[in-house]
């Protein structure tokens, strides 16, 4: 699972540069949470496009993740990219005062979609393409909000597992405290991904690697020494989240239908 970080950094900076330009932009925008993924993405974007072409939005809800905000500001300052802090508390609180809930999942999803909505608005205002920061681990187990943090113009890191993003972060020399802190989706104060998922990223990535990259059947993965219940749970997570990785199905009526047999490349005429 080790990656050639120098090569990956080169491929991903090429990807960001080429796809941003092909989409008709020369600037990129991304949400900065102060976590590993958005930090690595910001470093790659600054290398690919130049610091002055990258815009970071820090969008906290109250003080749910004060450390994250500090780290995000630090990243923006190190990279000398433009950044802005937008407190999303007023609109989130306004909504939940009308439709109250105790579910932190509902609240977290709403916040993720609020951030998405602001990113798209600022993307249009600033003429900047939105960079997605979901990694392969999150995409595969569906650990993300559909139309929330999963929404973007292009996604540079969607084929790197979380642990590989960390390796890349080391290579890019991102701040040590961001590299080593516990990953959090910031859904509530003190929330930790690995506790919520119930697996360490190391273990999760290893199992995903065997299942997905090596295409091994469940029995072989279990034989290789992974706990059966964990393997089966991961497969369930993959299955249940397929809808997050696809455009919604379109009911087929005619002989030629968008998504079925009207098939054009993304980079058409670019």
């Amino acid at each position: 699972m080790k990656i050639n970080t120098r090569l990956v950094a080169k491929v991903l900076t090429n990807f960001i540069r080429e796809e941003t330009h092909k989409a008709g932009f020369d600037r990129a925008i991304l949400g900065l949470s102060g976590g590993l993924d958005s930090t690595v993405c910001a470093y790659l974007a600054a290398q690919a496009l130049g610091s002055d072409k990258v815009f970071g939005l820090v969008m906290p809800y109250k003080d749910f993740d004060a450390e994250g905000v500090r780290h995000a500001e630090k990243v923006a300052e190190i990279l000398k990219i433009r950044w802005q802090k937008i407190d999303i508390s007023p609109q989130i609180d306004a909504y939940f005062s009308v439709f109250p809930t105790d579910s932190s999942l509902l609240k977290g999803n709403k916040m993720a979609r609020e951030r998405m909505s602001i990113l798209y608005d600022f993307s249009a205002r600033d003429k900047a393409l939105i960079l997605g920061t979901n990694n392969k681990t999150e995409l595969l187990i569906g650990y993300g909000t559909i139309h929330g943090d999963m929404a973007c113009g292009i996604n540079p890191m969607g084929d790197l597992y979380k642990t590989q993003v960390r390796e890349l972060g080391k290579y890019l020399k991102i701040p040590e405290e961001i590299l080593t802190k516990k990953p959090t989706a910031g859904l509530w104060p003190g929330q930790a991904d690995e506790e919520e998922i119930g697996l360490s990223y190391e273990e999760l990535d290893q199992i995903l690697y065997h299942l997905v990259d090596l295409r091994q059947p469940v029995e072989e993965v279990i034989k290789a020494g992974f706990e059966e219940s964990k393997v089966r749970r991961i497969i369930e997570m993959i299955k249940k989240s397929e809808f997050k990785r696809k455009m919604p199905p379109i009911a087929k009526i005619s002989n030629r239908t968008v998504g079925h047999d009207f098939l054009y490349p993304y980079d058409w005429d670019k």
């Binding site: 080790k2 990656i3 050639n4 090569l7 990956v8 491929v11």
Partner: peptide, 13 residues
């Protein structure tokens, strides 16, 4: 298209 980046020495895929 290039695939695979586990060769740590290579400049390419």
């Amino acid at each position: 298209p290039g695939r695979g980046v586990s060769n740590l020495e290579s400049q390419g895929f």
